[in-house]
């Protein structure tokens, strides 16, 4: 659509600007402020330069948490995106099944995150949980409280349970927007199921898939509440992701300087990775 040049449009954007500035810019400035200063209490601050940043970047704690976060996001994306596509392709297209599927699938998305954690914490418990009891009955030694691998599996299954529906809903929306004429044309040409997917459905889903990928990446990279409730970052530090580490540092130990420096590094990593994914995926779109 042709847009007219009109600087008065700023007035329409102003409320958003003021509101977001209040909830984003001011807090962010506080963080920046803390990240370059040190204090001995009494609200007396002095300049610390980039010391905190060096501290964070040189600590194993940061790199370990970052690695765990990256592995977690990678596994989540590798499972949820293909699974979401497969489920969306097999959803009913019309009839009573559509609203039933949509409502039931959207259900996990609207459960508060700590309740999601509670649900899985209970579900996986060996003494009172259905999953834990079933696995124990099958002779599988499963205990997410003590075994790091079990803890990871639990968190991944939980996240798949929690968020695959978002991918499904997005893909489904992309699929229903394809006009019937496309399928009829494909049928006349004798196209196989695979080529229908490859040349009609996948291109049409590209935009929603980009959104799904970015949202899932950002949210899995920021994950806090669910693992905090289920494992509390343990056993040991095996499920301590960046957010958990950060909150521990800022509110638990009140190490404002390092916590602020970590905050900024964390935010920059998310921005950078999101920007890279976005650029790579949109340029490949333009070529294809």
């Amino acid at each position: 659509m042709e847009k007219t040049w009109n600087n008065k449009a700023w007035f329409m954007v102003l409320p958003v600007l003021v509101l977001v500035a209040f909830s984003a810019v001011i807090p962010l400035m506080t963080v920046v402020n803390y990240s370059v200063q040190d204090t001995f209490g009494n609200n007396e601050f002095f300049w610390a330069g980039t010391d905190w940043f060096m501290d964070v970047l040189e600590s194993d704690r940061f790199w370990d948490a970052l690695t765990r976060n990256l592995i977690f996001s990678a596994i989540i994306l590798a499972i949820e995106i293909p699974l979401g596509i497969v489920i969306a392709l097999n959803m009913p297209k019309k009839g009573i099944g559509v609203p039933i599927c949509l409502v039931l699938m959207a259900l996990p998305l609207l459960i508060p995150w700590n309740v999601v954690g509670t649900i899985w914490q209970v579900f996986g418990r060996v003494d009172i949980g259905l999953l834990g009891r079933t696995l124990a009955a099958l002779g599988i030694n499963y205990n997410y409280v003590q075994n790091p691998i079990d803890a990871w599996v639990t968190l991944i299954v939980m996240d798949v349970w929690h968020w695959t529906s978002l991918v499904v809903l997005l893909c489904y929306a992309g699929l229903v927007s394809i006009p019937d004429a496309y399928y009829q044309a494909a049928k006349i040409d004798g196209a196989s199921r695979w080529s229908v997917f490859r040349y009609i459905q996948l291109p049409k889903m590209k935009r929603v898939l980009l959104i799904a990928f970015l949202l899932r990446f950002m949210d899995s990279f920021m994950i806090y509440t669910e693992p905090f409730v289920v494992t509390g970052g343990g056993p040991g530090n095996s499920t301590t992701f960046l957010s958990i580490d950060l909150v521990k540092m800022a509110i638990g130990q009140f190490d404002l300087g390092p916590a602020a420096a970590l905050s900024i590094i964390y935010f920059l990593i998310i921005l950078l990775l999101s920007w890279i994914f976005y650029t790579v995926m949109t340029t490949s779109d333009a070529q294809g």
């Binding site: 950002m218 990279f221 920021m222 806090y224 957010s243 950060l246 916590a259 935010f267 998310i270």
Partner: peptide
């Protein structure tokens, strides 16, 4: 701002 981790903002 959609990408900002809530953990970053909790304290400020």
């Amino acid at each position: 701002n959609r990408m900002a981790p809530p953990a970053v903002f909790a304290l400020p």
